[in-house]
Structure formats: structure tokens, C-alpha cells
């Protein structure tokens, strides 16, 4: 697996490429309907300064170890 660091210079582009943006409170939202994303594992909103985008359906998650672990197993054969 390879990794890309999100920083201030590339964050807007990355979010745009995935159809996302930030709301006024810094949470990630769907650009088209302005609805806040919810991490499927932590069930919490996702802060724009602390998140990952995981392969297999471009899932946005909070940076918690169980989010990564549960994502891996939910997509394993």
C-alpha cells in the first residue's frame, strides 16, 4: 500500500476530486447536497484536519485504529 499526506496545499484539490468540501465548522461535507459525512465505523462526523480516505469505495474515516481495522475486514474476501 502507498500513502499520500494531505496538507494545506493539496487538501482542497483532494476533496474536490472526491466531490467533497468543508463546511464552516471544518467538517467534511458532500459538495452537492452539503450533508456532513459520517464515519461508518466511529459513527461520528469527520473533521477536515484528521481523516483518511481508504480504498474500496473511497471511504472517508476518522483516524482511529479500529476504523482502519474494521474497514480492512469488511472488504476482505
Amino acid at each position: 500500500m502507498e500513502y499520500i499526506q494531505i496538507n494545506d496545499s493539496n487538501k482542497d484539490v483532494i476533496l474536490e476530486l472526491f466531490g467533497k468540501s468543508l463546511d464552516a465548522d471544518g467538517f467534511i461535507i458532500e459538495t452537492k447536497n452539503k450533508i456532513r459525512l459520517i464515519c461508518p465505523h466511529s459513527n461520528k462526523y469527520i473533521r477536515g484536519n484528521d481523516f483518511s480516505i481508504l480504498p474500496n469505495s473511497a471511504t472517508f474515516v476518522n483516524n482511529k485504529p479500529y476504523c482502519f481495522a474494521e474497514h480492512i475486514v469488511s472488504h476482505s474476501k
Binding site: E2, Y3, I4, I6
Partner: peptide
């Protein structure tokens, strides 16, 4: 992206701990 070889993160060390 759909080739599923890359993770994008504000803190790549976090997913790396589990993915590796």
C-alpha cells in the same frame, strides 16, 4: 484510485500501523 493501492490521509502513519 479504484486500483486500490493508495491511502490518502492527514496522518499516514495512523492507517499504516494497521494496513502493514
Amino acid at each position: 484510485w479504484n486500483k486500490r493501492k493508495v491511502i490518502i490521509s492527514t496522518d499516514p502513519e495512523q492507517p499504516k500501523k494497521i494496513y502493514e
